[in-house]
Amino acid sequence: VLKALERTRQLDIPDEKTMPVLMKLLEEAGGNWSYIKLDNYTALVDAIYSVED
C-alpha cells in the first residue's frame, strides 16, 4: 500500500482519492497485487483518473 501511495503522491494525487480506488481494484483483483503493480501502478493511476472524469 505504501508504494502505491508513494507513486500517486508523485503525481499530486491525495491519499483520500487513492485509497478508495485502490481498495476497489484490490477487491476486483481478488487481492492480487500483480495487476495493480504493473508498469509502476499504471492501472491504479488510470483508475483514479477515470473516476475523476
Rank of each mutant, 00 (worst) to 15 (best):
V1Q: 07
V1N: 05
V1S: 05
V1A: 06
L2H: 13
L2S: 14
L2F: 08
L2M: 12
L2C: 15
L2Y: 08
L2W: 06
L2N: 13
K3G: 14
K3Y: 04
K3V: 07
A4S: 03
A4N: 04
A4V: 06
A4R: 02
A4Q: 04
A4Y: 05
L5P: 03
L5M: 05
L5R: 00
L5I: 05
E6M: 10
E6C: 09
E6G: 04
E6N: 07
E6S: 07
R7T: 06
R7N: 03
R7H: 09
R7P: 02
R7M: 07
R7Y: 11
R7G: 01
R7E: 06
R7F: 12
T8M: 13
T8K: 01
R9A: 03
R9P: 02
R9F: 03
R9C: 06
R9Y: 02
R9W: 03
R9M: 04
Q10H: 08
Q10R: 08
Q10A: 14
Q10I: 09
Q10N: 08
Q10C: 09
Q10G: 10
Q10S: 13
L11G: 03
L11Y: 06
L11A: 06
L11I: 05
D12Q: 14
D12T: 07
D12V: 06
D12P: 03
D12K: 14
D12H: 14
D12E: 11
D12C: 15
I13E: 02
I13F: 07
I13M: 04
I13N: 02
I13A: 01
I13K: 00
P14A: 08
P14N: 04
P14M: 05
P14H: 05
P14G: 06
D15N: 03
D15W: 07
D15C: 06
D15G: 04
D15P: 04
D15I: 04
D15Y: 06
D15A: 03
D15H: 03
D15T: 01
E16H: 13
E16V: 09
E16Y: 14
E16S: 12
E16W: 15
E16F: 11
K17F: 10
K17N: 07
K17C: 10
K17L: 12
K17A: 09
K17Q: 10
K17R: 12
T18Q: 02
T18K: 02
T18R: 02
T18L: 04
T18E: 01
T18I: 05
T18G: 00
T18C: 06
T18W: 04
T18H: 02
T18P: 00
T18S: 12
T18A: 15
T18D: 02
M19V: 09
M19N: 02
M19F: 10
M19L: 15
M19W: 11
M19D: 00
M19H: 05
P20I: 11
P20C: 10
P20D: 09
P20V: 12
P20E: 12
P20M: 12
P20L: 11
V21M: 07
V21T: 06
V21G: 01
L22H: 00
L22F: 01
L22Q: 00
L22K: 00
L22C: 01
L22W: 00
L22D: 00
L22S: 00
M23K: 13
M23A: 08
M23E: 09
M23H: 08
M23R: 11
M23T: 09
K24G: 07
K24C: 08
K24H: 10
K24N: 08
K24W: 09
K24R: 14
K24S: 08
L25Y: 04
L25F: 04
L25P: 01
L25S: 01
L25Q: 01
L25C: 04
L25N: 01
L26W: 05
L26N: 00
L26D: 01
L26Q: 01
L26F: 05
L26K: 00
L26M: 05
E27P: 00
E27L: 11
E27C: 11
E27S: 11
E27K: 10
E28F: 08
E28H: 08
E28V: 09
E28Y: 08
A29I: 07
A29Q: 13
A29L: 12
A29W: 15
A29D: 06
A29C: 14
A29G: 08
G30K: 12
G30M: 09
G30V: 05
G30E: 12
G30P: 02
G30D: 11
G30Y: 08
G30S: 09
G31D: 08
G31E: 06
G31H: 09
G31L: 06
G31W: 14
G31I: 05
N32I: 07
N32G: 06
N32P: 00
N32W: 05
N32M: 06
N32E: 10
N32K: 07
W33E: 03
W33Q: 02
W33H: 04
W33G: 02
W33T: 01
W33C: 03
W33I: 05
W33V: 02
S34I: 09
S34F: 15
S34R: 10
S34Q: 14
S34K: 12
S34C: 11
S34Y: 15
Y35I: 13
Y35C: 11
I36E: 02
I36G: 00
I36S: 00
I36M: 03
I36T: 01
I36C: 01
I36K: 00
I36A: 04
K37V: 15
K37S: 15
L38R: 13
L38I: 10
L38S: 12
L38W: 11
L38D: 11
L38H: 13
L38M: 14
D39E: 09
D39Y: 08
D39W: 07
D39I: 02
N40M: 05
N40T: 02
N40Q: 07
N40P: 01
N40S: 06
N40Y: 06
Y41E: 00
Y41S: 01
Y41T: 01
Y41G: 01
Y41A: 00
T42D: 08
T42L: 14
T42N: 14
T42Q: 15
T42R: 15
T42E: 11
T42H: 15
A43W: 08
A43S: 09
A43F: 10
A43Y: 10
A43R: 11
A43N: 09
A43Q: 10
A43P: 12
L44K: 01
L44G: 01
L44H: 00
L44E: 03
L44A: 01
L44F: 01
V45E: 01
V45S: 01
V45H: 01
V45M: 07
V45I: 15
V45Y: 01
V45N: 00
V45W: 05
V45T: 06
D46G: 08
D46R: 12
D46Q: 14
D46C: 14
A47F: 06
A47C: 06
A47Y: 06
A47T: 06
A47M: 10
I48A: 03
I48S: 01
I48M: 06
I48L: 09
I48D: 02
I48H: 00
Y49L: 14
Y49N: 12
Y49W: 12
Y49C: 11
Y49E: 08
Y49Q: 12
Y49K: 13
Y49D: 06
Y49S: 09
Y49G: 09
Y49F: 13
Y49R: 15
S50N: 11
S50P: 05
S50L: 13
S50T: 11
S50K: 14
V51I: 13
V51G: 13
V51N: 12
V51D: 12
V51Y: 14
V51T: 14
V51P: 07
V51E: 14
E52P: 11
E52L: 13
E52C: 12
E52Y: 13
E52K: 11
E52R: 10
D53H: 14
D53M: 13
D53T: 14
D53C: 14
D53Q: 14
